[in-house]
Design a protein around this nucleic acid. Structure first.
Lengths: 143, 143
DNA sequence: TGATAAAAGGATGCGGACATCTTTTATGGT
DNA sequence: ACCATAAAAGATGTCCGCATCCTTTTATCA
């Protein structure tokens, strides 16, 4: 439930790059894919997108790879979600009724909206950096 | 976000059958599909499944159709979710990590688990009947 | 300047959710 | 017995998330 594989892959690969960059200037797709058990070519697409969107930086050629930039650790999870899954899912009616809204709620609306808002708040206020600080350094074994 | 189309179709069609059954002994797929704007043949599969699982009853032939049974209104939403989407989604790690659990949580685990449990509680404790009582009788315009 | 390394980009394939259409089976009315 | 009706069942089709593979571009170094 909840998030696409792309979101999970994106989040975990960013976390990995941030961690490894503390001791190593570049990280290559190959390494990330092997370490995190993510299909290499698919991960390539995702990390390329993350670089294009300036969540991380990249360099081609020998000794190239991916690395953090000034904004990486302060990226909110909601921004990641926007890039991988889109934010519409947070807005639209859980029964996908076009007409459902706070004034004319469907039977599920008021049972869902609070829970959903809590999730949005968490995604807005939590950053990549928060996730890393949240855990000890054996952390890398859990991504 | 969150629920399959099948879940929405199933829930709405059950609500419709319960409502209409107050004044009419049988409801046909054709009517449900038109009224709720659901693809007819796809709805047929879903309602057939609901009948097989005894959430509602059905009768073939002239004057046949679908109708409520003794258990219909007391069906918890979680049971519906189980039938349409499965319950695994509520259990598995939001990053889909096999090893993630309360003892060795991934960075997202503790940020998700409470929110998710609230959702499970709501789905367990809310029944079809609750959804109908929750609204006034213009309700049918919102499904 | 040529060889090599690594990301960027494009083409293709697969499986499952969603959707459509046709055939079969059961049932009540004549 | 026969016919009309409506659900059950099955065959087929579409689209998208996910995945794989191949080619191109860019950078580094000898």
């Amino acid at each position: 439930m909840f998030f696409s594989k792309s979101f999970g892959y994106a989040l975990r690969s960013i976390l990995y790059v941030v961690m490894v960059n503390e001791t190593q200037p570049r990280v290559q797709i190959q390494e990330v894919a092997e370490r995190l058990q993510i299909p290499k070519h698919f991960l390539g697409k995702i990390m390329k997108m993350l670089a294009k969107e300036k969540i991380i930086d990249s360099a081609k050629g020998p000794f190239g790879g991916f690395f953090v930039n000034d904004g990486t650790v302060s990226t909110p999870l909601l921004r990641l979600m926007e890039l991988t899954d889109g934010l519409e899912q947070f807005q639209e009616c859980s029964l996908r009724l076009k007409k459902c809204n706070a004034d004319k709620p469907c039977p599920m609306h008021n049972r869902i909206v609070q829970n959903r808002n809590e999730l949005i708040t968490m995604f807005s206020s939590t950053t990549i950096g928060d996730l890393i600080r949240s855990d000890d350094k054996k952390f890398i074994n859990s991504i």
